[in-house]
């Protein structure tokens, strides 16, 4: 998959942002991510991200019985997770602005079409 590498870095921040909205669980996060366009994101990718966030103390996890019976993990964001999310937003903004400038704005100035890039 061509955008896997790109996605890995961003995924952590996005998952953190989803959890920041309200206490949530795996299925809900997966559905939410799918709705915004992360189509091919499966639990195989999501679960390691959640484990990593939990281990780093950015999210906390509690286990409770789901309405359908199985034991479910509910995730909520911690204080350091909030800080991490803010930092992620900041750095993502900067990086995306710079990237957009290189990939798109420069092309427009030089009358190039989308997809054609002007290397520095």
């Amino acid at each position: 998959m061509e955008d896997t590498q790109l996605m890995k870095g961003i995924l952590e921040g996005c998952v953190l942002a989803v959890i920041a909205k309200k206490e949530t669980y795996g299925y809900e996060i997966l559905t939410c991510m799918e709705q915004v366009g992360f189509d091919n994101l499966g639990e195989g990718t999501l679960y390691p991200v959640l484990t990593r966030l939990d281990k780093n103390g950015y999210i906390s996890c509690r286990k409770a019985k789901s309405p359908l019976g199985p034991i479910r993990k509910y995730y909520s964001i911690t204080r350091s997770g909030q800080e991490r999310l803010e930092a992620f937003k900041e750095s993502y903004k900067k990086i995306s602005q710079s990237t957009n400038r290189i990939l798109f704005e420069e092309n427009e100035k030089n009358g190039m079409g989308e997809g054609e890039t002007m290397l520095c």
Binding site: G26, L30, Y47, L68, P70
Partner: peptide, 14 residues
């Protein structure tokens, strides 16, 4: 992990 995927599959089935 087995418990987690079980929860997801139960909900997906539902």
């Amino acid at each position: 992990r087995i418990l987690n995927i079980y929860d997801l599959l139960v909900e997906a089935q539902e």
